[in-house]
Design a protein around this nucleic acid. Structure first.
Length: 818
RNA sequence: GCGAAAGUGGCGGAAUCGGUAGACGCGCCAGCCUUAGGAGCUGGUGGCCAUUUGGCCGUGGGGGUUCGAGUCCCCCCUUUCGCACCA
């Protein structure tokens, strides 16, 4: 009896062999056809490798192995994103110190990753919690600080009461903490910011040319949120020293601005409020600020607008009318200037507000076809917000009759002449708040000296080592746990030598991951973060595959850090990834996987039963890789059977010699190589697998034994998916070297990939009536003659005449009859 | 509310420069093999009708363009994702 395929035995053997020969350790300096294949490194949780990780990594690994088989030297590194709130919260939950917990998690992850058969270069692992790594994270902070791109300032920030730290805007989802879903509140604290807003336009512009998944680019565009419009200054009666500046995308509606609204946090509010209104305003502001962010944000749909008249008046700069200034929480301090001009006729929110408080509403834009005979005192029952090419201005002085689209520029230009306004662009994106009042991160390398103020830690003093702090639990104070270590806290000022205190905030874990891919090629270099020659050779990353959930987090931050380092002269490129592809999400039996549902796929269980090769391949077979798939346990048997048959084709009996037995099979072989080559290159793994199955079915049709020439290319084609099985079969085919050592990917002949006999559909009046077999390239006349000879065709054109013939070569002929 | 993507057999999914819908796999059915089999092999498998040749219907719903529409256009429904008082 033939030897049976034992996946676990085969995989154990080859994993050991790969380890011993260090097959995938790359000669970083000597590689001649470098290909940097990157995947998003994992956060090493205590639960172990999640099936989502395996899905992501498998798709990326297949791409790497495919490139390797095509002759590239593929560098595929892995690391661990082990700093951060997530790790720390888990350590708190278990009551274990992260300095103990994390190394054991990493050990477990390493075991699992090796068991999956990924082609990692295990000699170049990055662990961001190691001082030799975060030394350089701190170095990057210092470079940005020196370059004026990092600053400490007081600002309203998102505070998570459960994590007891501030969060970046990107980490607040629907007003809740991204990590723990607790409602976020607002605090005013001194925080470190990176000025990503300085790069907003470039981050947006480069999206035009970088090769990324379209959907990911769209998310970034939305997040950057560019709007064009104007800044307009309004004079305040009785305050000649002040002007109220607003941003608007609709300067064309300026003549309709009948009031102004300030955000409750607006700096002028206290000074301009009149005495009779002061109590009411104070009261309102107090209430608004006490409200948590979630409640305030819900307002749009559910809550009625609210506000209070400040008693102060402004002058509409074009109508010279006095208009009242209100305070209302529907105006947000963090966008624009924290103040708006109220144009109730042409903005829904302003309309609601004006209706509620009986403020005047003036129509200034109407559809062009209503211009003749327009009644200037007409009333609206809803804001008119259309803004196409067809609207014209009314009630707008010398701009009456001007197209609204043109008036935007004309009115702004006119304002600019008088120094009352300018063209302006606003972005939704905010500066990146990187301070965290937590323990488990790289200390921000700054020192506070009473005399010298903020002093950066000198580069030669790096790293600022994270001390062991027994009680690392965060508290309400807004001061990080590092302040509890007197030894850490108290330091000499590097400038004056006097007593000073260290910064006790640590940096956001997204700073660790914003540059980790630059470190991989240089992990053995302790004098530089990334060595210039290697960086030039390997970077930017050739292919990056990862989850889209990081579109506005990691992916935005790493683009920013790369640009900043480029501008500071440390990098020769400004975009980190040549190509980025998002992968889809995997669900189970139509439902999202989650611990609470108890339906999480545990990779270990499947690997033990079916082997890593079958598990990998099955995950890829579920659906298009970039769209995700639905994991159904039963289905994996189909892959196991396929591998059994591949195994049997090689091991089951004598392999015949000579070329493929028939021309037809040879054609199928070439067509399959072509399809699989193209599909794998385009990450269309599901259809590539289907094509290989189809080919094997053909090669073994009728129970025949396949010849070597028929099966050897298939072994190479399954190699990216099932590397262990392919290695084993490759060896049994007589090769001494690993299949991944050379360029083993099969070539195909375009001509041979085309069948010389084709099936042509024969339609009568567009309905399929017969199928005929013909020589490839057969002429219309030939096909028509054959078609007319078909009995089924004749039946359907009985007594009628062909009035028209549509012929698609090698595919179809349609006879239109009457 | 705004923006985007997607709705195809019992199931996961193929096929979109408009050209034979349902590749491949799961499941199911029949047969073979077997002491036995949640094993393996062979064949079948969108629905309805027909003894066979075959016919009709069919890609969320409705209209349209076309010799021909899953694919293009218009309207509607549903789902998923992103953003959400962003001025």
């Amino acid at each position: 009896m033939a030897e049976k395929y034992d996946p676990v035995a085969v995989e154990t053997k080859w994993q050991k062999r790969w380890d011993e020969t260090q097959l995938h350790n790359v000669d970083i300096d000597g590689a001649d056809a470098p290909f940097y294949n990157l995947m998003m490194y994992p956060y090493p949780s205590a639960e172990g490798l999640h099936v989502g990780n395996v899905y992501a990594f498998t798709g990326a690994d297949i791409h790497g192995r495919f490139k390797q088989l095509q002759g590239h030297t593929v560098f595929e590194p892995i690391g661990f994103d082990a700093f951060g709130i997530h790790s720390e919260n888990f350590a708190l939950e278990l009551g274990v110190h992260p300095m103990e917990l994390i190394p054991s998690n990493i050990k477990n992850f390493t075991r699992q990753l090796k068991r999956m058969g990924f082609m990692y270069d295990w000699a170049r692992v990055v662990d961001v919690t190691q001082p030799e790594y975060y030394k350089w994270t701190q170095w990057i902070f210092l470079q940005l600080y020196k370059g004026g791109m990092a600053e400490r300032r007081q600002a309203p920030v998102n505070w998570c009461p459960s994590c007891k730290t501030v969060l970046a805007n990107e980490q607040v989802i629907d007003g809740r903490c991204e990590r723990c879903s607790t409602e976020v509140t607002q605090r005013f604290l001194d925080q470190w910011f990176f000025k990503i807003t300085n790069y907003a336009q470039r981050l947006l512009d480069n999206l035009e040319w970088i090769d990324w998944s379209e959907s990911t680019k769209r998310l970034q565009r939305n997040w950057i949120g560019r709007s064009e419009g104007a800044d307009i200054d309004f004079e305040i009666i009785g305050h000649p020293d002040k002007k109220l500046r607003v941003f608007t995308t609709r300067p064309d509606t300026l003549f309709g601005a009948t009031f102004m609204v300030l955000a409750p946090e607006h700096p002028y509010l206290q000074q301009i409020t009149t005495d009779p209104q002061r109590a009411a305003v104070d009261d309102y502001v107090k209430n608004a600020l006490a409200m948590d962010v979630v409640e305030r944000r819900k307002a749009g749909e559910e809550r009625e607008k609210s506000g209070v008249d400040t008693g102060a008046k402004a002058i509409n700069p074009v109508t010279d009318e006095e208009i009242s200034i209100w305070v209302a929480d529907y105006v947000l301090m963090e966008y624009g200037w924290g103040a708006i001009m109220g144009v109730p006729a042409h903005d829904e929110r302003d309309f609601d507000f004006a209706t509620q408080y009986n403020l005047p509403i003036r129509i200034v834009v109407i559809p062009a076809d209503q211009y003749e005979g327009f009644d200037p005192s007409a009333e609206l029952d809803a804001a008119f917000t259309e803004h196409t090419e067809d609207e014209v201005l009314v009630n707008s002085g010398k701009f009456d009759g001007v197209l609204a689209a043109k008036a935007i520029k004309e009115i702004t230009d006119w304002l600019a002449e008088g120094g009352r306004g300018t063209h302006a662009v606003n972005y939704r994106i905010h500066d990146w708040c990187i301070s965290r009042q937590r323990y488990w991160g790289p200390p921000i390398p700054a020192i506070h000296c009473e005399k010298d103020g903020i002093v950066p830690v000198p580069e030669e003093d790096l790293p600022v080592t994270l001390p062991f702090v027994e009680n690392f639990k965060p508290d309400e104070s807004g001061v990080g746990p590092l302040a509890r270590s007197a030894e850490f806290l108290n330091v000499e000022c590097p400038t004056c030598g006097g007593p000073a205190k260290r910064e006790t905030d640590v940096s956001d874990t997204f700073l660790d991951s914003a540059w980790y891919f630059m470190r991989y090629p240089s992990t053995d270099r302790h004098d530089v973060p990334f060595e210039a020659g290697r960086t030039k050779k390997w970077l930017p990353v050739d292919m990056y595959i990862g989850g889209e959930e990081h579109a506005v987090l990691h992916l935005m931050y790493s683009r920013f850090i790369t640009m900043a380092l480029h501008d500071l002269g440390h990098l020769p490129f400004e975009e980190p990834y040549h190509k980025f592809r998002k992968h889809g999400l995997i669900i189970r039996e139509g439902a999202k996987m989650s611990k609470s549902r108890g339906n999480v796929v545990i990779p270990d269980e499947f690997v033990e039963r079916y082997g890593a090769d079958a598990f990998r391949t099955y995950l890829m077979f579920l659906g298009p890789y970039e769209e995700g798939g639905d994991f159904r346990e039963q289905g994996i048997a189909g892959i196991s059977r396929f591998f059994d048959r591949v195994w049997d084709a090689v091991v089951g009996g004598e392999l015949g010699d000579g070329p493929p037995e028939t021309d037809e099979l040879n054609q199928k072989l070439h067509a399959t190589i072509k399809k699989v080559s193209e599909d794998v290159a385009g990450l269309q793994y599901n259809t590539a697998i289907a094509a290989m199955m189809e080919y094997l079915n053909a090669a073994r049709g009728g129970g025949r034994s396949a010849r070597r020439s028929e099966i050897e290319p298939l072994v190479a084609m399954i190699a990216p998916f099932a590397p262990h099985l392919a290695e084993e079969l490759w060896e049994r085919l007589g090769y001494k070297e690993s299949i991944f050592a050379g360029a083993s990917w099969p070539a195909y002949d375009e001509q041979l990939a085309l069948a010389d006999q084709v099936d042509i559909a024969v339609q009568v009046n567009g309905r399929l009536r017969a199928t005929i077999r013909a020589q490839r390239g057969a002429s219309e006349a030939q096909v028509k003659q054959a078609a007319l000879g078909e009995e089924a065709v004749q039946r359907h054109m009985d007594g009628m005449e062909v009035v028209k013939t549509i012929f698609v070569p090698d595919r179809l002929i349609n006879l239109v009859v009457k």
